[in-house]
Design a protein around this nucleic acid. Sequence first.
RNA 1: GGGCAUGUGGCGGAAUUGGUAUACGCGUACGUCUCAGAAGCGUAUCCCGUAAGGGUUGGGAGUUCGAGUCUCCCCAUGCCCACCA
Length: 791
Amino acid sequence: MAYDHKAIEKKAQQKWEEQALYTTDLTDTERDPYYLLCEFPYPSGDLHIGHWYAFSVTDIYARLLRLRGKNVLFPIGFDAFGLPAENAAIKRDLDPKEWTYANIDRMRGQLKSMGASFDWSKEVITCEPSYYQWTQWLFVKFFEHGLVERRKATVKWCPQDQTVLANEQVSDGKCERCGTEVVEKELTQWFLKITDYAERLLDGLDKLPWREEIKEAQRAWIGKSEGAAIEFPLAGRSEVIKVFTTRPDTLFGATYVVLAPEHALVRTLLSDVDNAAEVRTYLDKTAQKTERERSEQKDKTGVRLEGIVAENPVNGERIPVYVADYVLGSYGTGAVMAVPAHDERDFEFAHVHELPVREVVHREGASLPYTGPGTLVNSGDYAGADSDVVAWDIATIAGGVRTTQYRLRDWSISRQRYWGCPIPIVYDPDGNAHAVPAEHLPWLLPEDAHYKPTGHASPLASSDELRERVTRIFGEGWTPEYDTLDTFVDSSWYFLRYLAPHDTHAFTDRALSDRWFPVDRYSGGSEHTTMHVLYARFFTKALYDLALVSVDEPFIERFNRGLILGPDGQKMSKSKGNVINPDDFVDKFGADAVRIYLAFIGPYNEPGSYPWNLDGVTSMRKFLERIERLTVRADHAALTPELEKALAQANRKIVQDGDRFKFNTCVAALMILVNALEDAPSVSREALKQLLVYLAPFAPHLAEHLWEALGEEGSVHAAAWPVAAEHAEETVAVVVQVNGKRRGSLEVKADTSEQAVTAQALEIEQVVTALAGKKPTRIIYVAGKIINLVA
RNA sequence: GGGCAUGUGGCGGAAUUGGUAUACGCGUACGUCUCAGAAGCGUAUCCCGUAAGGGUUGGGAGUUCGAGUCUCCCCAUGCCCACCA
């Protein structure tokens, strides 16, 4: 090894710490502020290669911006409450708190070993009372303004983790954390009313310059659909069945009505149906199915409510009523009008249960079920009309009301677990909820609770201290809330806390947030598109409405980074044995080589997957060694025009592609520069100094070391970004084409006229041959790039 | 099933608003240095052709002086959502 990376790294990291190089002065008004944010890590244990990719590559940009004169805020913290840490601690028979803090200590050291330029003075840890005091304070604000609600609802429950999950935390019917099949449970829970913001969350996206795929994913998740709410009266009864439909034009084709098994009306009707036993059996069977079983069963199951008859409001037709689990209790009104001819699910159900299929929208050549638009048939006075045109007329005569439905559900935030932020709510003797007054915040997580979940009651219920605390403060008969908050609540506002991490009077600093918020660029994983990023946007809008911040979108730019795969091209996992431990590589090749490898592997501005490649890291180490050898050749000669040009090109490329988050081409530009320097007859100190500044963001330790070796003062990371030399006299290569085909090229001065270029082009032998005596009829000249002679 | 994204050498990838396709690197081959190996250094490396030249960005069509880039159709892959009425 040509240089001792361990010694170099240690020395450089010490130097930066001593000089407090990365402590951001938030009150500085001289330089432009730039808030660069990475998703803060979950203290799960060791830092893996994905963490390196997330933090060390974003760090390149932080360093680059600082060199270019920005006042950069690049903070770090820990998302420290939550299930995985708690489960891991229980498995090891440790207190979740001890386990979490031990992990934080270890990860801090590992994060520093990357040479990441985080401002540790602003570290936030969400499980610290000084942090969660403000999570609670915000919860109370939301509570006071009606944004928090306690209600009974069917919620997703993870039997393994013994807790409720938010809709966003269920994927493919399984728990996001542990993969267990999720079941539904009826529970009284706290909700954040994110659905109140559905429309604004949608609108806000239009103005954001994010990649379309991120915005589309959020739009799809919010799932806006417009339609009509229509009431179907029940013959001889006072109740009505309210349905939601986006297709009122098919109303004449409704041949039955379906209620979801969870629908409240089912229980009411049960006493009057002729086949109550059969219905009850069906309801019980359905209740035992997991979400997935319900959606994956081959045949659409259901049962008719015998003796109950609904009336189609458009024509008074009497049609049967069914209970079927293909209708979701949680969407729309929990009931649908079934139009088998024009809906695939209704068609399937009608087929199984031998219900009539009546075509009302006709299109030549289309077979049923046909779900597109067409000409109405069997539709009374509307027969012959265009289905799209008269849809709302039909809705109107049926008494339909224009309704907008969202797929988005309110955010369930109660967790029946120990390791989370206590919900700052107490109940009076009558069971009414009251917010814990601000003077009692932080509302501490009791230390005497049995933290293992029992499934019967939340762990906090086992705390005597909590009960006594409530009695002492509020009086006899008052009881605490025993659930804790979903971890995603903690992380929905941490980017504001970085601005005032030690403030004991406010959750953030208003003056600083006016200056620093929103975040300029936020880098994270695509798995958070419909979770954390959505929640953070919701929080910001709510805070804006409470006049606590001045903007209502938290992130100007959002980038989802890619994934590092195992050497076999598969996703890394312990079971596949293809997990790369970054520590081994850092130990062997140095942090700089690993950083620059991760930067070079592919563009950072779009999500992709990159297999880990040992040869790639090795070659980066060799590249760094070439730079080290180069510095030994330093002399005092003046810069040659060639080198000046090469330096200017690298400078411009790194600035431009850095801003685009394309560090792979920045590294390529560095390589081209190093190749040019190696080929040069002499290497001046001035050229090397510039090279080291360009290298510094990518390989911060080696750049610092070589900077010192050249005898330079201070830190290379505090150096001024070189001004790229402008060459007015520069010649440019102009490609000469005949009929769009390349026939040669010319070296001309940039400001050469079209006539002069044409004249020169016509002298090229291949051009003459290609023209074969013809005269160009048209000449297209793009200055400095191309000239095309069309003949 | 729906939505979005992406298809460029053996591999990762490059190609500002349409303007030299394959930058940079890996791998490979040969050479050099060496007692030998490693490292280093040098040369070559999309395809056909001795060459001149011609062809090539998943396939097909189109717009254009000019298309990897724009439009349409098809194919493949990846991600997200998924009984959402």
